[in-house]
Design a binder for these strands. Sequence first.
DNA 1: ACCTTTTACTAAAACGTTTTGTGTTGTATG
DNA 2: CATACAACACAAAACGTTTTAGTAAAAGGT
Lengths: 347, 347
Amino acid sequence: MFGMSEQGSPPARPTIRDVAREAGVSVTTVSHALNGKGTASEATRQRVLAVADRLAYRAHPMARGLRQGRTGVLGLDMRPLDAIGSYLPEGVDYFMRFAGAAAVTALDHGLGLMLVPDLTRSDIPQYAHGVDGYVVGDPVRNDPVLTRLLDAAIPVVTVGRDPGRPKFTDWVGPDDAYETERVLELLRSRGAENIALLAGTDDNAWNVDSEKAYRSWARRGGMPTRVLHIPEAAGEDGGRDAARRLLRGKQPRPDAIYCQTGRHAAGVLAEARRLGVSVPRDLLIAAGSDAQQTRLAVPGITALDLGPEDSGRAAVELLIARLAGDTTPGPIILPTELRIRASTGDA
Amino acid sequence: MFGMSEQGSPPARPTIRDVAREAGVSVTTVSHALNGKGTASEATRQRVLAVADRLAYRAHPMARGLRQGRTGVLGLDMRPLDAIGSYLPEGVDYFMRFAGAAAVTALDHGLGLMLVPDLTRSDIPQYAHGVDGYVVGDPVRNDPVLTRLLDAAIPVVTVGRDPGRPKFTDWVGPDDAYETERVLELLRSRGAENIALLAGTDDNAWNVDSEKAYRSWARRGGMPTRVLHIPEAAGEDGGRDAARRLLRGKQPRPDAIYCQTGRHAAGVLAEARRLGVSVPRDLLIAAGSDAQQTRLAVPGITALDLGPEDSGRAAVELLIARLAGDTTPGPIILPTELRIRASTGDA
DNA sequence: ACCTTTTACTAAAACGTTTTGTGTTGTATG
DNA sequence: CATACAACACAAAACGTTTTAGTAAAAGGT
């Protein structure tokens, strides 16, 4: 106490001790007054608040976090981040809307959201342990990040399920199978009889469940199936290549193509046009994920708007509920919007 | 010491005390061994590392941050975040590339990046004080967030300068005046003799310096000037309205329009087409910011790629340098790329 | 042999907050 | 009058790590 060198000059940052000294009470009373705990009288409380305000006192989150064992910060595994440098705006659109909604939702609960670059690329960095829980998007089968976080006993909620963890139910997201059939039904109602699927190659539930639903739906409807697996990272080029094979190959030409990603769909559209295949007259196109490419294409491409804002919001809320001890079973299924555009023609 | 209930069962999360106990040394020696400090012998160090690895020990960032007075986390003021819910992807593209590069750069230095929703909307939340410094983009004149951060003695670097703070030099970004003239020179070289400027309404340096440069450049070249101020949030609709006024008004019709934002430019293009004005034959269009809209437009719109990745990288690096005590004077001027597309015709 | 420096280690303080445990006083009730 | 409870406050411990301050022993120099 006598060694406190701050006696000579004001501290750079006021601490709870400064407030206690000026208010003439103990640090316990200051803490109680500021946090609505204990039994401080109203008069004491007001005095404390006034002093804290005058000194611009703010609790140090590190100290508080250390004592309380939680920090008030959530982590967001920023999975598509690596692609930014290579200029793949597919993830940009979806992810930003998702991250934005997540951040706002966190803030509404007085929490922060920390962007953590793709944890699949490196071990969990030191600072990333200082969060109360994580949101991870589109886990792949037996996702390594999910493994790490679960091993480290860090609470986690995913968007989409991990195909290799059927018992992990802390996830939110659309019913991919149902949504896929929804688009297929639209294509059928617009006259399609031979629908090809352009799937991605990531081993995540989105791809897995959508393809499974496609095959099941086609079989039940007595329709032919044709699936091409194109890496998500191939983007529009991948879509173009696939369209060439589908529209110029030896097999019967499909009259509709359902692409998982909007960029694949944009590539298919561009190549169809180049090959003289008219959309939507000769070929219908739809995408399982809305993006700038589907919105700005001419003609606009019908797409499932997966509602990244809803996903971000729901994921954060589920994580907060889990942190608060809520054990309501997951998953939380979210609706989507089917944005009908010219690529699927008129009714 | 005798009250330590963890004696009966292993702690949920190993602490440095557990490592010390098992390695048979003090906690000081563990800390030194793990952090490359002190004078631990090599044999002791190896023993400590082995125990720490076996116990999966990781320092608690809160405790470390409290002791060291820094956390290893940077904050990013996510200014356009609010617009996400209203589906304005203008900011999405630029911001995501910016934030992504910033996060990766931070990680490369072992630091984290926390997204903090627009601080202009609320006071700095508690958690947001637990960062070592901030990156703030496009400050407006006497930016309130900058004011708050500087008042709280939180280190800050901006992308773009604050027009009301000529003495604040901790910023990175392009030389907006120079870059504006560059585009104007291109338009002139393509035959333009009457260039209109579509500026934004945010009172930030980007708008201020670009307009000033435009007026100065036109006066020096004996060219007429015409400036319309359109709110950034008006997006393509704003661009369309402006084009109507410029192309249908009583004043002489411009033969080129330079738009600050890519969305304004896309709106101008759409309206010109609707009015039967051919681009680039009758009208040249250029944008001061590259975006999906400028890239995907038909014809593609010539635009300045402001290099958000470079900005994000440079801002984080300058902030890290400042935190390390580096006092090299700012600002750090960054180059841009002029992406020439069909909207400005051929050479 | 003696003094100084280096090696190798430790105990305790420090960081700033919240929580636990306790004491005093006043009031209500049997 | 005695007992129980509530109001109001405080001191100290707790949280987990890093840094400060110190000591014993070994090594090096004169």
